[in-house]
Design a protein around this nucleic acid. Structure first.
Lengths: 331, 331
DNA sequence: CTGAAAGCGCTTACAG
DNA sequence: CTGAAAGCGCTTACAG
């Protein structure tokens, strides 16, 4: 492979001049520029950016830690990140961590070993987790309250409370929950929102109708099997992801129940399929792409040496009412 | 940040010895090793892998070109790639190209500029597209017949033909198609399979019931609007992706049609939600994870200097029959 | 087992 | 506008 030295030899100019012709053409005479370009063309020269990065101590790469790449909410968020990164000349290294601490720290070490300039964490912060090394530029996207570094997210507690209040307003008083893993911060915050809504309506919290899932289709389906055992059955189900809502509806249908006629179901995220499911899902729309864009802007700002004034950017969510909810049946 | 020179100074050993203690501990005396490790610990030293890569002219990074990261089939394929890559110590740089030629060539240039060792292309090869530079190590995954470089895929023609024959065997004789973009190779191959199946049954091809989509939910929904205009309506629909099948079913239901009672619908890929939709989708299961694993193995083999014997790996698919298909109604 | 030295491919302050 | 030279942080053949 041709190197800058070959171009220098071919053009009869020093490597310094060749380097300038490439990076700062205005510093070089037209004549030299021409000769350099001819040599580059002839030799099919491509600069070794790995060398350049090393020399400049800058990688123009950011890493994104994704708990699960097959989750459409994350996919959308990532497109937002990529748009901004690409526009600013950064590459995005995607780390599919699958909730494995080992894999996650491998990706973090990309930053520590200077193969990347910073990272965006998509997993909500976990209080037990060690703080990220403060010398590492990091932003949390789509996470929760209490993240101890820069973050971009919606207000999960409020959003959850809003959906549940909506169900209450339809007349439901017995509202079940299919949550994510119980130690996941999203589960915790959204459950808190649920409790707040119940409390404001003077309804007692009953953990018999709270079932733990893991945000997946399967876990929603499975949760319904548990719920069908309880004596005093809910007339509505608040699911903490659209996937779980879909799984749950599938399970309910298999038990011969109609949604929303027999039981209302709500999701969370508003992934594409939410609108195409039957019934179309009532859900909370997170501004996934915007969260990604904002997080990327924030990180690039930090990488470029600025200190963002705001620690937390809270973006607006939206309650989308579709077909999966209605007033409870009169008995 | 501490460099190897700092560790050398701290430990009182040469940088050569420090380097060896890190990369080849067995070449160094126990005593030296101990002193180096103490110094590393004390200084919180992390080797600059960007420098190391440059020095070794190896990046241990592969890039994966994904047409659309929000497509679950790709997401699964990518997990297969990542598993193998991680196990072998490679990083995966994900390039979400969104079918943009510009973005794609930016990612390819990562390999040309030696920031990555090779690439896996997830977009099916397009005959008009320039051949990849033969000096670049590249593998196509999940693509189509006629890819001019190494590839791992299913036999799309045969798989499509098999689904259509299945519909024929149920008694359907008027089978519509919702295809991907008509210049996409997957669309071309699967349409060919469709034609073969019709031909073997002595049924004439009628392009009035072939509608072009783009593999998305929305395009499936939209295609149904077109199909509802034709005089002689199909009793079954062969959709070239699960997303389009779901979109189509949603559209049919809105027109008051029952699936499969009034019309049968088949998908392609078998993404997770296929089994949770109502009705659950009859579809072709592509071994997405396996395709990814095999493609990664192939690429790493090439990067490490071997020449794979086989140019094309054809993996088995599976026809999954669920609830979205049945015999046509007697009229 | 250890160290001095060359070199990977670039960029850039310095001198002219 | 141009070139010689130093240096980014490592690895490794060579000599001892």
């Amino acid at each position: 492979m041709a190197t800058i030295r070959d171009v220098s030899r071919e053009s009869g100019l020093s490597i310094a001049t060749v380097s300038r012709a490439i990076s700062n053409p205005e510093m070089v005479s037209k004549h030299s520029l021409q000769r350099v370009n001819e040599a580059i063309e002839k030799l099919q020269y491509k600069p070794n950016l790995s060398s350049q990065k090393f020399r400049l101590q800058r990688t123009n790469t950011i890493v994104v830690l994704v708990p699960n790449i097959a989750n459409l909410f994350f996919a959308q968020l990532i497109s937002g990140i990529e748009d901004v990164a690409a526009r600013r000349g950064y590459n995005v290294l995607l780390g599919d961590t699958r909730d494995s601490v080992t894999r996650e720290s491998e990706f973090i070490s990309l930053v520590e070993t200077r193969q990347a300039d910073g990272l965006i964490q998509l997993r909500p912060h976990d209080d037990d987790a060690p703080l990220p090394d403060p010398t590492i530029k990091a932003v949390n996207a789509g996470g929760c309250a209490g993240t101890p570094y820069h973050s971009v997210r919606i207000d999960n507690i409020e959003a959850a409370s809003k959906v549940v209040k909506y169900l209450l307003s339809l007349g439901h008083t017995r509202i079940g929950v299919i949550s994510g893993l119980s130690n996941n911060r999203h589960s915790i915050d959204r459950l808190q929102g649920y409790k707040q809504a119940l409390e404001s309506a003077g309804i007692a919290y009953d953990d018999e109708i709270i079932v733990e899932g893991d945000f997946s289709l399967w876990s929603g389906f499975n949760a319904v099997q548990h719920l069908s055992q309880v004596a005093n059955k809910p007339t509505a189900l608040f699911c903490m992801s659209d996937d779980m809502a879909i799984g749950a509806i599938k399970g309910l249908k298999e038990k011969g129940l109609q949604v929303p006629e027999d039981i209302s179901v709500t999701g969370f995220d508003d992934i594409d399929v939410a609108n195409y499911y039957d019934p179309a899902l009532t859900t909370v729309r997170q501004p996934a792409v915007k969260i990604g864009e904002k997080a990327a802007e924030l990180l690039l700002q930090m990488i470029e040496g600025e200190t963002p004034k705001v620690q937390e950017y809270i973006l607006p969510y939206e309650l989308i009412s579709r077909e999966s909810t209605s007033a409870p049946k009169r008995v």
